[in-house]
Design a protein around this nucleic acid. Structure first.
Lengths: 230, 230
DNA sequence: TTTAAAACATGACAATTATCACATTGAAAA
DNA sequence: TTTTCAATGTGATAATTGTCATGTTTTAAA
């Protein structure tokens, strides 16, 4: 896979797709390819960002940790998604932390290059706007889920989301994106023990099987049924 | 207060502020001033919007109702805020319903006029982008609150928010924006009965007094203390 | 003003979920 | 390989919150 922005296919997934060759050449000259190891933090809540990160490979959690010590995952970003664009647009410090869920490759694009595109390329701004508006809808719906659905329903939803978004191993049938029980709990907004307990429950009922951290969905329909409110 | 967009001070509060006179004259010709009575729905989740609404007076709740019958308030919008811009930007149906919390005056601006500004005024798009990005931060933080704070903490926060955002009656000291117990419960994501019970609790402790739907904050510090996690 | 309906309030109870304690497993390092 | 530590898993229990029932008050309409 080419590391030149002009030839990069990743950008088809995000707002960078609308940039012309001239813009892309300029971004390519300033960007920096970075390798991030599983568990490493790309940036931390409250930190001033000096650019955005375009995910080439791997997945990251965007989360916030509170005084009570537990953290809540707002979003899982993967291939093609951009991190930090909200902060750059608002000229604010990061509101969330980004932590690698597995080994990652990201392209760091300095703030100046992005700001310059925002200033001169209206089409790019429009694309950013649509992206941000879509993220807002997703966040609003997450608010609804958190306030209206039980932990069991949210776990079922999360498993279906992981299957749809990241797929299953063609050999084993296990969910491709492997989360620790702690991260899975943080994604659905519950205590780790509650999450584990419900996974055991799902196992007992034959909806899933587990092997270490790996999870395999056996009865898709049962999980889908759970997500419906009666 | 003038009803001509060119002279309207309300637009200082939103993205319309960056439009030039020419743009404003065009919008003024197509806009329509509407009166909305308390309790009326401006638009409903799933509905196709034919424009945006600029709030001149009054307040509205943006909420979503689920199959289980309860609704969750995502946001309270008031003077100067724009409703429906997310849907227009994404060309999607409304994700939330907007219901008047008191009598309102809104300016309806047809989709075509807004789309035309988006197409030709990069500065306007940039402003929309910043607005949307800010709303996204607010939504993300609401997710954190819902998952990490207790109902009691969220109620304390909501009361403080109502005071800061809408103020208190200079005579009585009551919170200016009056919400039904049901709406207050929907705002903090709990059952109406739980909300009422906690209000009674706050009364017993002397933090607040109530008279009908009116609430007066007596001990600001006590409520602020509650919002802190130990 | 009277009456009906809606909103508010509280008790009793059940369900959900968190917390603490501790056992077991698995993964990584010595 | 052995050892060590973190992650996973389970039980017991408590705290929080939701639900249902029912009475009271307020509001709006006849």
């Amino acid at each position: 896979m080419s590391t030149k922005c002009e030839n990069c296919v990743i950008r088809q997934y995000n707002a960078l797709r609308v940039l012309n060759t001239e813009d892309l050449v300029e971004i390519n000259e300033t960007k920096e390819l970075q390798s991030i190891s599983k568990g490493d933090m790309i940036f931390k809540e409250g930190q001033r960002l000096s650019g955005i990160y375009c995910v080439r490979n791997g997945a990251t959690k965007l989360s916030k940790i509170t005084a009570s010590g537990r953290d809540q995952i707002i979003k899982i970003a993967s291939k093609g998604e951009i991190l930090g664009q909200r902060s750059i647009v608002c000229e604010e410090n990061a509101n969330l932390s980004a932590t690698a869920l597995n080994d990652m490759e990201v392209c760091f694009i300095p703030k100046s290059a992005i700001k310059s595109r925002i200033a001169h390329n209206p089409l790019f701004v429009k694309e950013l706007l649509v992206t941000m508006a879509t993220e807002l809808r997703v966040a609003d719906n997450m608010i609804i889920d958190l306030s209206q659905e039980t932990v069991k329903q949210r776990l079922a939803q999360a498993l279906l989301y992981l299957k749809n978004q990241f797929g299953e191993d063609p050999n084993t049938g296990d969910l491709t994106l492997v989360l620790s029980r702690e991260d899975l709990a943080a994604a659905i907004g519950t205590a780790t023990e509650s999450c584990i307990r419900l996974l055991s429950d799902f196992k007992k009922k034959g909806y899933i099987t587990t092997q270490g951290k790996n999870i395999k969905i056996l009865q898709l329909e049962a999980l889908e049924e759970l997500t419906k409110d009666f």
